[in-house]
């Protein structure tokens, strides 16, 4: 126990790195998912082809292999050495962004056709239709799956252990080697990962609740802490009808 308390700053450092990788990965994956997801719904074949190639390439390759390429192979080919942190975030973002792009694409396609027809009747351009009507409605649909992906991404940050970045996994294993306190060390690591995941899930749940409110779907409990439970599936229409 004293050992754990003494080593607490190292755990915090590792946790901080894991959080940085997670947040960096989320930002990059989100931008890629939105960009390629929207491109995958366009009428012209070219953006759809680009989106398909991106998704199929990076969905099919493990983030670890991408990271090895960026850190070990790229310098041999180009003589250009990426910063480890940057390469790790790039690998994670590219990988999870490919999954996210499919979520974005399918959520956009799930917006009822009648909504799109209403935007045609109002003579909106494609960009106006996307920004004002389609994406705000698709957003609520994306969030539950984004919640999964965010946690997946956080757990996938542990691959940086293999390029010797001192994240939470690396620190835990290092402390095990130094002390032999295998069970306590991994219990702490377990708890810290779990805590980060819970914070992420809570954040996504808040976004989900807000998105559903904007679509006029209010949980029967009327909000509060119960509103953070998984929302009821159907019959979400409440309010006065005269």
């Amino acid at each position: 126990m004293e050992f754990l308390i003494a080593q607490w700053p190292r755990f915090l450092d590792g946790t901080l790195l894991t959080i940085q990788l997670t947040l960096g990965g989320i930002v990059l994956a989100f931008v890629l998912a939105m960009t390629f997801g929207v491109m995958g719904t366009m009428r012209h074949w070219l953006p759809r082809a680009v989106a398909t190639v991106y998704v199929e390439v990076f969905r099919g390759i493990a983030a670890l292999v991408v990271m090895y390429w960026l850190i070990y192979a790229l310098p041999l080919l180009s003589g250009f050495q990426l910063e480890d942190m940057f390469a790790a975030i790039l690998a994670l973002g590219l990988n999870l962004g490919a999954y996210g792009a499919e979520v974005v694409r399918s959520s956009i396609n799930a917006v009822p056709r009648a909504q799109v027809e209403a935007t045609v009747a109002l003579n909106m351009s494609w960009a106006q239709r996307m920004r004002l009507v389609v994406l705000p409605q698709a957003w609520a649909q994306m969030l539950p799956t984004f919640g999964n992906l965010v946690v997946e991404l956080m757990k996938a940050t542990a691959v940086v252990y293999l390029v010797s970045m001192h994240d939470l996994s690396w620190i835990a294993d290092d402390l095990r080697r130094l002390s032999g306190e295998t069970i306590p060390v991994f219990l702490v690591a377990f708890a810290l990962y779990y805590l980060i995941a819970q914070v992420l899930i809570f954040g996504v749940r808040l976004l989900e609740r807000r998105a559903n409110r904007r679509l006029g779907r209010v949980p029967p409990s009327g909000g509060g802490i119960l509103g953070l439970l998984r929302p009821p599936t159907v019959g979400t229409k409440v309010g006065v009808a005269k």
Binding site: Q115, A121, L122, V133, P136, Q137, L215, G216
Partner: peptide
Amino acid sequence: SIGMVFQQFNLFPNMTVRKNVMEAPVHV
């Protein structure tokens, strides 16, 4: 110059009533 009203209304659920009516005039 053409407008349409649909059988199923097709209001935008992500907007208030006011926004439903004013968004296209503002943006289009």
